[in-house]
Design a protein around this nucleic acid. Structure first.
Lengths: 334, 334
DNA sequence: AAAAATTGTGAAAACGTTTTCACAATCAGC
DNA sequence: GCTGATTGTGAAAACGTTTTCACAATTTTT
């Protein structure tokens, strides 16, 4: 009835459990004939290593925990697939948990390392602020994805928001725009701040200052709201950099209702390059984030960290790529 | 150095490990005074139950495995959040694995139940066909999400694709359309077939037959390709039901380039109600899928199945809701 | 006040692995 | 043929829980 155990294999192959274990984990050190007999036995009774027993003995779980602090962002699944691929490649499983912005739940998850439920944690997006003390007091293998965790001693991987934003501004400048605006993302997130800073500093380099800065969030509604605000401006920018594709879509859609044409009347840039960007009308000029790589990189960093918690791992900055499509053009001649 | 164990708590509270265990798992049966002393001790040394030890003894993992057979669909993360919420509510963890369409990996994951890595499996989207025999020969707790697995004895939960599609057609008929077309989703998936069948049968009920059926897939590109085909038709339908929102977006965007206006020249309906649908221009008429509930329902079914593998659990059909927005209108007067 | 039922606790065995240590058996070197 | 290294294997002790069984101490019943 019950599943075959290591000892069952041992009995069948007429060896000790120890040898079976060795046959499985370090085949090299066991006699060739014995090895084959054991493998045969394993096949025959369909033995599968019991994870719980193995984990208990080895004091590890072979699992990585992906900890999400809130609703999944627009490309969560893409990153997750990267995480999954890289983790499973390395023999790790992936656990997904949402703290639902509940500090207690966050603490619980953090503790899951002690409970050997996971060997390391990948925090996705925003950090549960309560985790700060925990991390400082009792360091565990943990890596941040997508957002910097300024004050915390946690390595992170993100796209190079600063450079990418500057590239966007350069693109707009080259098109001849001089009045450029920005719809920020959530500025409590480092990505939101970095995109804004990249925007501002590149303008500054050109001797310009922002014509319009609209403080919003990473979602469609923000784009729509920003459009209303844009319409009410007396001195309208001729180009607007929205800090995510979705906001750009909301922005463009709302403007279209007011007969504003993109890019003829106004150039719009997004950020992320979600699958729809290329098929929107107009196709959106944006920055392609290496979503999947963000996931794989994070896992690689985490594994290194698991190998050595004290290891100092530098933050990884991934390259974003400006994709010029139809939503940007020369400024209208006035 | 090492984490505090049950025996450490026991020593500190001057009781046996057995009692500590009871204090944790069945507080009711232990003496009030002792209980408090134990809880104090637990607090004091910061004890957390070790999952591996517990799992080994209990022969379960308290984990559900979400098994994905291919790239995540457009609303994967939403469903996943539903799964996560419901699972964690019930004290279960969620493991995510992608078979990457690799049969061997699928078999491995299936076996993970034997290894007590997970207590049950949620298969997401398409089934790995190789699993069929496995399931028949050795039933384990497993539930399908989103797609029917026709020949397999596996309970599934899906949206009521048939009714929803019929509602879409009814809506178009009420607007006065008589020439209605359909861009199918992936018809190797039950959802794709069901949406098509709903479409056809409701038309039939009105004494009509499909003016145009375009066999495509669940993605943006399909919409664009469908648009090309639509343009080349001699007898064009005045309304088109695209089987997912993304296809609808691709379709509309491609048509707009050819100066076809939606809904003035052509009505378009999507399916899913992804967040962008409400903010597209025109806002998309579509069917709202209860993504999150799909996840929670699946988990509830799976838990029931874990409780009793033989339990006969009926498939769960969730209601989709027609959301009428701007992309549908009366047919043009010719 | 004795017998019977109840309550609370501890000792020990189990869950299924891996690994240390020790010990045979084989092998190379002389 | 003898020593010393090498190779392969087994016994047993972990890893950290939970649970059965037994037993003492208390409470209830007669």
């Amino acid at each position: 009835m019950s599943n075959p155990k290591l000892t069952d294999v041992a009995r069948l192959a007429a060896v000790s459990p120890a040898t079976v274990s060795r046959a499985i984990n370090q085949p090299a050190i066991v006699n060739a004939k014995t090895l084959e007999r054991i493998q045969q036995a394993i096949q025959q009774i369909g033995y599968e290593t019991n994870t719980a027993g193995r984990n208990l003995r080895l004091r590890r779980s072979d699992a990585l925990l992906v900890m999400i602090s809130d609703a999944p962002s627009r490309f969560f699944s893409q990153i997750l697939m990267g995480v999954e691929a890289e983790a499973s490649e390395a023999g790790y499983n992936v656990l997904v948990s949402n703290t639902q912005d509940n500090p207690e739940r966050g603490r619980q998850l953090y503790a899951s390392i002690q409970q050997s439920l996971a060997d390391g944690i990948l925090t996705f997006g925003r950090h549960n602020p309560e985790l700060g003390d925990l991390i400082r007091n009792h360091p565990i293998p943990i890596v941040g994805v997508n957002e910097h965790l300024e004050e915390l001693p946690v390595p992170v991987t993100t796209v190079d928001n600063l450079s990418a934003s500057r590239a966007i501004v350069r693109h707009l400048l080259e098109l001849g725009h001089r009045k450029i605006g920005h719809v920020t993302g959530t500025t409590t997130l480092s990505s939101g701040r970095d995109r804004f800073m990249g925007f501002r500093s590149e303008l500054q380099l050109a001797g310009l200052s922002p014509t319009w800065v609209c403080n919003k969030h990473y979602n469609v509604e923000s784009g729509r709201e920003a459009a209303e605000e844009w319409l009410s401006l007396t001195d309208r920018p001729t180009a607007v950099f929205c800090s995510c594709d979705e906001a750009a879509f909301g922005f463009i859609a709302a403007l279209r209702r007011k007969e504003i044409r993109v890019p003829e009347d106004l150039s719009v840039v997004g950020f992320d390059d979600i699958p729809l960007a290329d098929h929107y009308c107009p196709a959106l000029t944006t920055v392609r984030q290496p979503h999947r790589e963000l996931g794989t990189t994070a896992v690689r960093m985490l594994l290194e960290r698991i190998r050595d918690v004290e290891a100092s791992i530098p933050n990884q900055l991934l390259e974003g790529k400006l994709i010029v499509r139809e939503s940007t053009g020369h400024p209208p001649i006035t």
